[in-house]
Amino acid sequence: MTKYLKVNPSVQKASRTAFGETLVHMGEKHPEIVVLDADLSVSTKSAGFAKKFPDRFFHMGIAEANMIGTAAGLALSGKTPFLCSFGCFVAGRFETIRISIAYNQVNARIMGTHAGLGIGEDGYTQMALEDIALMRSLPGMGVLQPGDPVETRKMIEYLSSHHKGPVYVRLTRQNLVSLFSEDYEFEYGKGVVLKEGKDIALLATGGVVYNSYVASQTLEKEGISSTVINIHTLKPIEEELIVHTAKSHKRLVTVEDHNIIGGLGSAVSEVLAENGIGTPLLRIGVEDIYGESGTAENLYEKYGLSINKIYEKTLQFFQESNRPGR
């Protein structure tokens, strides 16, 4: 279990906001950082960097493909570009990313904000629900999604100073409860165990990690002992941790604000299948349908990502699959 756990529901911040603040600090330390945005700098929170470092910030206009190509050129010339837009718009220019950034294996940081149902009222067209699936399919592309503001900051610090190669980072519009202490250490590619149990394990990513954590506490009251793991790195996925968790629990549940096809649920399934592990798995997420408008809270309730719905689904899954004869 992580020693950095410090869940504090009274401290909340959107991961996009934590990103924007950290980017300004990193800009001071790293002159090679450049930032591009496609007319959403106020929303993606790259505006802080724009203000502080106008010479290293580029308003690309509503022209995401051009932004991606330009970032690739900057990266090929030794810069570390952070290119920002809503996840749906930037991942939507898949083939441009595929060749200019991924195939070139450049140090570009693709920042996709307003991920998932969490964007709320704007509805499906602005809602990244397939971005993880797309980005995960590109060889050499790191796919990251922080679960709280502290982890976001540490992740951005790491990506500003150390990491080599292209990365897609998925951030939320909505506030996230602070889960970690300030001295949290981010480890690329490593899952973070938030809670240890023995019956069932919930593997969650991004904005729904906290909901999964609280749901798991409620499960204890039903006498179900549950583990919760925060998967901030969707690719490369930590295989050993998943194998170990699957072997040491009766049931697995994945929780993500993304289509269950191609996201965390798929990544975990692939590991289980390839290792010949038959632990039953429930994938909680958007069930291969389009999202819609509504408050984030209403949508989480309707699509099964609220604390209550995660709890209910997990409980039902556990009870059903525990019935004799199955």
């Binding site: 704007d122 509805g123 819609e292 408008s293 309707k302």
Partner: peptide
């Protein structure tokens, strides 16, 4: 408008 289950999505939806 923009409420859950509405035909009047935050952005135009031809199917709904």
């Amino acid at each position: 408008l923009r409420k859950i289950n509405s035909r009047l999505q935050g952005h135009p939806d031809h199917v709904r």
